[in-house]
């Protein structure tokens, strides 16, 4: 969860950049217990997300607003953690800023990074054997279902 949440934080930043796995550790300690609670905040996402929808392509990179990003990713951070993250995320963003300065006018854009292509899967079912332990790790599981707070409206 924390991994994913951080990816979401990063992707929420204006230039949609990535971060190397080693940096993911930053937030892990503070969020490892929050995976079940993500739905509690689900109504707040919209207002926050909106402020990022009008990003321009300007090469000047905005400094990160960590508390907003944390909210967007449903992560609770203490002011101290926000401060700590801000410096680190800013460093990453600055690094992407350097990348953006590279002149790529003569390079044909790649829609994806090079990967081994053609690795499609046959449409043949296979049961994952260890389903019990997946279900056992669900914090609130009752009568065959995941139990979550009642949510009728998205966002």
């Amino acid at each position: 969860m924390a991994t994913r949440a951080l990816l979401a934080v990063i992707s929420a930043s204006p230039n949609r950049c990535f971060i190397s796995p080693s940096r993911i550790k930053i937030l892990q300690s503070s969020t490892s217990s929050s995976s079940v609670h993500f739905h509690r905040h689900s109504r707040k996402i919209h207002r926050i997300a909106r402020s990022y929808s009008s990003d321009s392509d300007s090469s000047v990179l905005q400094p990160p607003d960590v508390s907003r990003l944390a909210q967007t990713a449903r992560i609770s951070l203490t002011p101290a953690e926000i401060e700590e993250c801000e410096t680190k995320i800013r460093r990453v963003i600055d690094w992407f800023g350097q990348l953006q300065q590279v002149d790529v006018n003569s390079v044909e854009p790649a829609i994806r990074a090079e990967m081994d292509g053609g690795n499609l899967r046959e449409d043949a079912p296979e049961t994952f054997e260890n389903r019990d332990s997946i279900r056992a790790s669900i914090p609130s599981f009752e009568e065959a279902y995941l139990k979550v707070p009642k949510i009728l409206n998205k966002e």
């Binding site: 979401a8 992707s11 929420a12 949609r16 990535f18 919209h46 207002r47 997300a49 909106r50 990022y52 929808s53 967007t72 829609i111 994806r112 990074a113 990967m115 081994d116 292509g117 053609g118 690795n119 409206n153 998205k154 966002e155």
Partner: peptide, 21 residues
């Protein structure tokens, strides 16, 4: 639900899947 504006889904390319050729 009333929409306050365009939803921002923060789309970005799925890093775990190659392009579909």
């Amino acid at each position: 639900r009333k929409k306050e504006g365009l939803a921002d889904y923060r789309y970005f390319p799925e890093p775990d899947l190659p392009e579909v050729i």
